[in-house]
Amino acid sequence: MDTIWNYRWLLLQGLGVTVQVTVLAGLLALALGIATGLARRGPPLIAWPVHIYVEVFRGTSALVQLFVLFFVLPGMGLRLDPMTCGVVGLGLCYGAYCSEVVRGALNNFPRAQREAAVALNLTGTQTLTRVVLPQALLVMLPQLGNLMVELLKASSLVSLITLADLTFQARSIMRLTLHTVEAMSVLLVAYFVLAQLISFGARALEARLGGAWRGRTEER
């Protein structure tokens, strides 16, 4: 364990990269997910291309997408640095999953609430921003929290496109010191703790936002 402690700065640097990739890709995925999730309820000319985006990025593996961005795009004259590649690749991929969560929540939104909004003569935008989204977001939160944990795990794949994240550094330490078990155990525990932090954050946010009217949103 002492050997690993000697390399703690390397691991911390890796942790920084992992957090950076996860947070940036997560924000991109959320933005894409909400935009495309809403767009799929729009006119067919918008909804169809979005549908294709979702199916393609959910249908191909995250690692394959990263490799295409990293190895194939430079041939097309678009050279992205590994960090951009990782953030954009994971963001696009998890944006597609996110999109499905948003769509599901909007589709399952109780019709009675929309009817009530019509009865109050609210405009379409008002209905969306004041009635639908506040309730739907709360329904989505646990699923989005899970997606962020998935994204954290998938961020380990960026180590395979030369980005020096936590997994990358742990592997280097493993090669340098041959303390394989220790290096890998530290790595497993680090991801476990990070994932718990994300889950905890999502639950806390849900409790804070949901608080008083939670009982109502869980009604089906």
């Binding site: 944990v149 998938a154 180590s159 997994t167 742990a170 890998m184 497993l188 991801y191 476990f192 994932a195």
Partner: peptide, 17 residues
């Protein structure tokens, strides 16, 4: 624990450790 650790790291652990 199984759910919150990456597949890649699990594979490394099984194969290398």
């Amino acid at each position: 624990f199984l759910r919150s650790t990456p597949l890649l790291v699990k594979a490394y652990f099984l194969y290398f450790a």
